[in-house]
Design a protein around this nucleic acid. Structure first.
Lengths: 106, 106
DNA sequence: GCTATGTATTGACAGTTGTCTATATAACTG
DNA sequence: CAGTTATATAGACAACTGTCAATACATAGC
């Protein structure tokens, strides 16, 4: 995923440049899967969560699928992670959501 | 596309139910394509726009592709449309964006 | 070192999606 | 009516994506 950019003007205000549209579309794409949204929501609501401890069982998908979605969320800058012993913990990084929220606002 | 529902709690606050996640993911999916985002942005910035008059030339995609994206936007409740003579005019319906913006906010 | 456990990666596969060309439908013009 | 123009639809196709089973990697405990 691309670097953090100053992105974007509210999409209601003026036409998006091609480059801005690609950035925004990519981030919306990260949110465009129900499993991934629930995963992020679980992490955010918990404040911090560990995949095996908290996430795999609740979602009804396999461990590799959860791992895949966590990677997508991490690459998109929506969650941070840290390994502690055998476990990897995840926590929300809501800054990117704020950017998107602002882009949707007028 | 589904009916307008009371959706959703901010996704940072509490875990999304499966049904809410599916609604939100669907709407984010509508915004997850750069061409479609630019199309919506063009309509919104213009206040009102006609496909042939204003949209096809600016986007660099074929007329059927624009027509397809306009249908997706209309079905999602993001734009309204009206036929006037040979032309179809589109205007933004930003309420749905507000719902999404709120869901992303804390 | 051996085993158990949490996580990541690989490869495969089905379903979805964005795009195009070709064509159909609709409406104005002369 | 015939021709032109705006839009929509149908069908095809390539690219992407979400999922899983199998497997590799990493770490803790014995």
């Amino acid at each position: 995923m691309q670097e953090v950019v100053e992105c974007c003007q509210p999409i209601l205000d003026e036409p998006l440049a091609r480059r801005e549209a690609e950035s925004l579309a990519g981030w919306f794409g990260v949110l465009a899967d129900p499993t991934r949204l629930r995963l992020f929501s679980l992490i955010a609501a918990a404040g911090e969560a560990c995949a095996a401890c908290d996430l795999v069982d609740d979602l009804g998908v396999s461990q590799p699928t959860v791992s895949h979605h966590l990677k997508v969320l991490r690459d998109a800058g929506l969650v941070g992670s840290e390994k502690r012993g055998r476990w990897v913990y995840y926590w929300p990084l809501p800054e990117r959501l704020s950017v998107l929220s602002r882009a949707l606002g007028s």
